[in-house]
Nucleic acid binder design. Structure first.
Length: 580
RNA sequence: GGACCUGUGGUGCAGCUCGGAGUGCACGCCGGCCUGUCAAGCCGGAGGUCGCGGGUUCAAAUCCCGUCAGGUCCGCCA
C-alpha cells in the first residue's frame, strides 16, 4: 500500500489510466542524457523501475533518493521496452525532488555484474538494494508467512523461548554470555530450543512452534552460519507419522506459496538405503548414478586393494571428462576423504563384448569383470569407480565423489524432497567404548529394537528422521523418550551415571517426573530452505547480514575487543592474544 | 587444526608458466557533444601501496618464504 510521499509503486503504473497523477519514490537507477532537452531518469523501487522523461536536468546522479510527481502515459509507439515489466509506460515532465544525494557507490548494483562477496558484505546495505537480494529476502519473508499460516491452521501455538539459556555440555559448541549481575557466571545462547520446547510439552502446550534463532559456535560453511533460524516444532500425544504430516503440510504450503500452486511429493527412504545407494544421509538424488554394492563380485579377488568388507561401485556421470590426470586426482581425492584409495575401470566395446583398462586389469579374472559390468550396467565408454573399505567409509567416500562428479548435472528446478528414517540411535563408540548419541540422548529408540540396547546398541534404530531437499539436510527431529525406565537404560548405555545426568539435565528429568506426555518434534532450517527455493547455493545470499567463514562481520568489523573498564563489571579480564 | 582456489585504479578481468618502465580490456567516475533512449551513443580526461612483509636478482605484479583477507572443502556441526 503506497502512502506518505508516495502514491504508487513502479509496478503499479502499467495498471493506471493514462494521465493519472502519481508520486513515486525511490533511487535513481540510471540516467540517459540526450543533450539539453531530453533526459531519461530511471527511478527504482523494490517493485521495479519507472522511466521518467524530463526536459532538462543535470543535477541528478545514480543512487540519489528522489520523489517524482507527474503524470503516467503510455510510451510513444515504437519506444516501448519489452525487456522490463514497466516498459510500456513512463512519467512525463514530472517534478523530481531530490530527497537525498549520494556519492558514487563502490560497486555496480546490476545483477548481471558479479562483485566479489567481500566487497558486497562490506557495504551490505548497498548490496541489499540489488534486485536479487530484494527478491531473496522477500522470498524468505514469504516462507515465514506461509509457515506461520500452516502451523496455526494445524493448531500450533507460537511461544518464544529464552536466548539467554543455560550451558549444556552435550552437542555443538555454545556461545557464552557473561553475567553482570552474577559476575563470573555465564549464560549460553541456545544451539536450539530443544529442552525448552520439551518442557512446554510437560506444561501442556501440546502443539508448539516457533521461528527460532539458534546459535552454534562451530566452523562456518556455505550452508552454516553461527546463527541460523529454525522452524521449531513439538507436539504431544503424537507419533512419527503425525510429526511428518505436520511438517509435510507446512512444506507443501510453503512450496505452493512460493511457486504459485506447485505441488510436491514427499517420499521416504531409510537411512541404510540412503547410505547404500548414495553414500550420504542427505543424498542428492536428482542426477541418478546410485552406488552399486559389488562386494560379492570381489569376494575371492586377488586384488588386495579390493579385498575389504565392502566394495562400492559408481558409474562416473561424465566419463568422457576423465583424463588419466583427472583419474589420478580422483584417487587422491578418495584418500583425502579417508579411504585407502580408489580404483577405476575403463570400459570399451570390443567386438561382441567389452574390454577394460585399469591399473589392476591384469589381476581381474574374466568372471569378475563380467559380473562387475553386469551389476553396474556399464557399457562402452563408461568408467567404473570402486572404493573398497569398511561399509560406511566405502559408501561415504564414493558418495562424496559421486556428488562432486555429478552435482552440476542436477536439474536446478527439480525439488527432490523426502524423509530419511530409521537412523541408528548411536553413531559409533567414544574412546571409552561407549556409544555416542546420533541425535540427542532423549531420542526414542525404535520399540522393536529395545531389546538390543544392552546387547547390540549400534544396531538399534531410532525414531528420528531427517528431511532432505536437493541434497541438503533441511531439518531433523525425533520422538522423545517420556518414560523414565527407557531414559535410564539409554543413560546407562551411554555411560552417563545418575549424578551426571542430573547435573546436565536435572531440570528436564525433574519435570518428567511430574507427568510428561508422549511427545516428539522437528526443526527445519529456514536459511537452507530459503536458499534452495531462491536457487542460491549458499545461505549468505538469503541472510541480510551474514558473517564470513572466519566469523567476521565485514560491515561492522565485529567481533571487537573491549577495554578493561567494560569487562571489569562482568568479572572478566582478557589475556593478551598472540596472533601470527 | 588441515587441503585447495583467489587477491592487479572505484568495480570486473587480462598480464604471472618463460622476471625487463604500472602495460591492456570492459564497466564506473569527471568534462564535452548529442531531442526517444533504456546496461543509450560518440569524443576527451582523471584515477594504481599489483593485499602486506621478507628473500633471490642488475631488475619482481611475475620466482621463493611468511603473513593477512575472501571463498570451497575436510575435521567440527548431540
Amino acid at each position: 500500500m503506497a502512502a506518505g510521499l508516495r502514491t504508487a509503486y513502479a509496478a503499479d503504473l502499467t495498471a493506471i489510466p493514462p494521465g493519472t497523477s502519481v508520486s513515486i519514490c525511490g533511487w535513481v537507477n540510471r540516467i540517459r542524457q540526450h543533450g539539453e532537452h531530453l533526459v531519461f531518469v530511471d527511478v527504482r523501487d523494490h517493485t521495479g523501475i519507472v522511466q521518467c522523461v524530463l526536459a532538462k536536468r543535470d543535477d541528478l546522479r545514480p543512487e540519489y533518493v528522489v520523489q517524482v510527481s507527474g503524470e503516467v502515459f503510455p510510451r510513444p509507439e515504437g519506444t516501448e521496452n519489452p525487456q522490463i515489466p514497466t516498459g510500456s509506460v513512463e512519467i512525463r515532465d514530472g517534478i523530481v525532488t531530490v530527497l537525498s544525494e549520494a556519492e558514487p557507490i563502490p560497486f555496480s548494483l546490476d545483477d548481471r555484474v558479479e562483485v566479489e562477496e567481500a566487497t558486497r558484505l562490506r557495504h551490505r546495505y548497498l548490496d541489499l538494494r540489488r534486485e536479487r537480494m530484494q527478491r531473496n529476502l522477500r522470498l524468505r519473508a514469504q516462507i515465514n508467512s506461509a509457515i506461520r499460516a500452516a502451523m496455526e491452521e494445524q493448531g500450533f501455538v507460537e511461544i518464544e523461548t529464552p536466548l539467554l539459556w543455560t550451558p549444556t555440555p552435550e552437542g555443538a559448541r555454545e556461545f557464552y554470555v557473561p553475567s553482570r549481575t552474577q559476575p563470573g557466571s555465564f549464560y549460553s545462547l541456545p544451539q536450539s530450543p530443544q529442552i525448552a520446547k520439551q518442557l512446554l510439552m510437560v506444561a501442556g502446550f501440546d502443539r508448539y512452534y516457533q521461528i527460532a534463532r539458534c546459535l552454534r559456535d562451530e566452523d562456518l560453511r556455505s550452508d552454516r552460519q553461527f546463527e541460523f533460524t529454525q522452524l521449531d516444532v513439538e507436539a504431544s500425544f503424537v507419533g512419527q507419522a503425525d510429526v511428518h504430516r505436520f511438517i509435510s503440510n507446512a512444506m507443501a504450503r510453503v512450496i505452493a506459496n512460493v511457486f504459485d500452486g506447485r505441488t510436491v511429493d514427499i517420499g521416504t527412504i531409510s537411512w541404510r538405503e540412503a547410505m547404500g545407494r548414495y553414500g550420504s544421509d542427505k543424498p542428492d538424488r536428482r542426477f541418478g548414478h546410485p552406488l552399486v554394492d559389488v562386494t560379492g563380485v570381489f569376494a575371492k579377488t586377488e586384488v588386495r586393494a579390493l579385498s575389504a568388507p565392502h566394495v562400492a561401485a559408481l558409474l562416473d556421470p561424465e566419463p568422457t571428462s576423465l583424463s588419466r590426470a583427472r583419474l589420478d586426482q580422483l584417487v587422491e581425492r578418495a584418500r583425502a576423504l579417508g579411504a585407502k584409495g580408489l580404483l577405476w575401470v575403463k570400459v570399451a566395446q570390443d567386438g561382441e563384448g567389452y574390454s577394460i583398462s585399469s591399473p589392476v586389469s591384469k589381476l581381474l579374472d574374466r568372471s569378475e569383470v563380467e559380473q562387475l559390468l553386469e551389476q553396474t550396467g556399464a557399457g562402452d565408454g563408461d568408467v567404473i569407480l570402486l572404493v573398497a573399505d569398511e561399509w560406511e567409509k566405502a559408501v561415504t567416500t564414493l558418495g562424496q565423489i559421486r556428488l562432486e562428479r555429478g552435482r552440476h548435472l542436477a536439474d536446478p528446478k527439480e525439488l527432490d524432497l523426502f524423509w530419511v528414517v530409521d537412523f541408528p540411535l548411536f553413531e559409533g563408540l567414544d574412546e571409552a567404548g561407549k556409544p555416542i548419541s546420533a541425535h540427542h540422548p532423549f531420542t526414542m529408540p525404535n520399540e522393536e529394537d529395545l531389546d538390543l540396547l544392552e546387547t547390540d546398541p549400534l544396531s538399534v534404530r531410532s525414531q528420528s528422521y531427517d528431511l532432505v531437499l536437493n541434497g541438503w539436510e533441511l531439518g531433523s527431529g525425533s520422538i522423545r523418550i517420556h518414560r523414565a525406565d527407557i531414559q535410564r537404560r539409554i543413560f546407562s548405555t551411554l555411560g552417563i551415571d545418575e549424578e551426571t545426568a542430573n547435573s546436565r539435565f536435572g531440570f528436564l528429568l525433574e519435570a518428567f517426573r511430574y507427568g510428561a506426555p508422549p511427545h516428539g518434534g522437528f526443526a527445519i532450517g529456514i536459511d537452507r530452505l530459503a536458499a534452495l527455493l531462491a536457487g542460491e547455493t549458499n545461505i549468505r545470499e538469503i541472510i541480510a547480514y551474514p558473517k564470513t567463514q572466519s566469523g567476521i562481520d565485514l560491515m561492522t568489523q565485529a567481533p571487537k575487543q573491549l577495554d578493561a573498564a567494560t569487562l571489569a563489571p562482568l568479572g572478566l579480564t582478557v589475556r593478551p592474544v598472540q596472533r601470527g
